[in-house]
Design a protein around this nucleic acid. Structure first.
Lengths: 209, 209
DNA sequence: CGGGCCTTTGACTGGTTTCAACTTCTGTGG
DNA sequence: CCACAGAAGTTGAAACCAGTCAAAGGCCCG
């Protein structure tokens, strides 16, 4: 039975696959050879999620990481009061997954689901280890991603500690306009750690200017 | 003129140098050979800081990272109102440095100084790149440290967004009792993003239980 | 003993949350 | 194409948590 190369088949299913190539090459100093890119591509499998469908549920171990080629997803936990606390929002060209569970192999505290119909490229934990060892550019990319992730988290902590609700929204909307457009207000509010009512009032104030 | 190996000389100056070896080996799956360990050691230089002395000042680029073998340090920035906002506290067996400046080679927004008399092992940016390339265990260690760092930063961001002052203190004191013992309350308060007065009241409430 | 640093306490203020009611928007099935 | 239900956003009033300011007390070290 004839089976086309994984790379080709992926390419045909996802118009967004080229974004992925761009993303990879952007992060590595030495450009990937075609050979390496195919090796890389072969490690990924496509996945479709309909709106509201889970990518990961609380208690599961995050064995897959996903690169979003189309759609929008959210990561959140449910607090004691039953409120959904958003900890992460991601759209095209971003990764999704629970980093802590992924790295430590512990059950996740979070849920991740699709906010819109979404197309993903999935990679298994074991396969990343192989890739990182075999492709230097890949190793470098992962390290840079971790660094960026840490820096971003640091900034977020600083923001939530020292900025007012108004400032926090303005700052976020400035840096991530695409995200703000893509999700409803109450989701953004939750991500910023304020209530939807407060965000509504913030917007009234901010728009005035 | 006779010059003993770097490793030996370091060993003699720092009783805490063995902690460093433990630290390294703990993080790498394959144990280091003596050869590798010497190579590693040669890249580090000892440094002493007296209490209040700066390791890094706002505006400088962080070209060195430090491993603390003895002492305690703080990283903070000064806000518009002249308040010192602590962003990081570290003691023996921890690293110090401004990750963002270190990674991006941009001027730091932070100050880092010694809270107690401190002994450090310093490494230069360029040397880390070499080590990471030449010693696989080193590469692995750096990646794991990045991962841990990213996870910790994430947790801190979540805590500062969704926990009350009481919860934040309890959580922090539970996870980092050594740090709490080592610094005065107003420093801990600043790190948690609350005022010293609030922390004082928190403690009164918490101790009651 | 005095001075600096740290902590505690009280009164006041303000930004945010909470709760509840109401409006607007949107997509779906009859 | 309208009707309607569910989701999203708005508004007001009351309660609350934490910040600010000011003053006093504790503690340690020279």
């Amino acid at each position: 039975m004839y089976q086309p190369g994984r790379f080709m088949s992926l390419n045909m299913q996802f118009s967004g696959f080229e974004y992925f190539r761009d993303y990879i090459t952007k992060y590595s100093t030495t450009p990937l050879t075609n050979k390496q890119f195919e090796l890389l591509s072969a490690a990924f499998q496509p996945k479709f999620l309909k709106k509201k469908q889970y990518f990961l549920q609380e208690g599961e171990v995050c064995n897959y990481y996903g690169f979003i080629t189309k759609g929008a997803m959210r990561q959140y936990r449910v607090d004691e009061g039953g409120m959904e606390r958003i900890v992460h929002l991601s759209i095209e060209n971003w990764w999704v997954g629970d980093r802590e569970s992924w790295v430590m192999l512990t059950p996740s505290l979070y849920n991740i689901d699709a906010w819109e119909d979404t197309e993903l490229l999935l990679i298994k934990k074991a396969d990343t280890l192989k890739l990182v060892q075999e492709i230097p550019a890949c190793n470098e990319m992962v390290r840079k991603m971790d660094e960026m992730h840490a820096i971003a988290a640091q900034k977020r902590a600083n923001a939530s500690i020292s900025l007012s609700a108004d400032e926090r929204y303005i700052d976020f909307a400035y840096h991530y306009p695409q995200i703000v457009k893509r999700f409803p207000q109450h989701i953004i509010a939750s991500y910023l750690g304020i209530t939807k009512e407060t965000l509504s009032r913030v917007l009234r104030r901010v728009i005035k200017k």
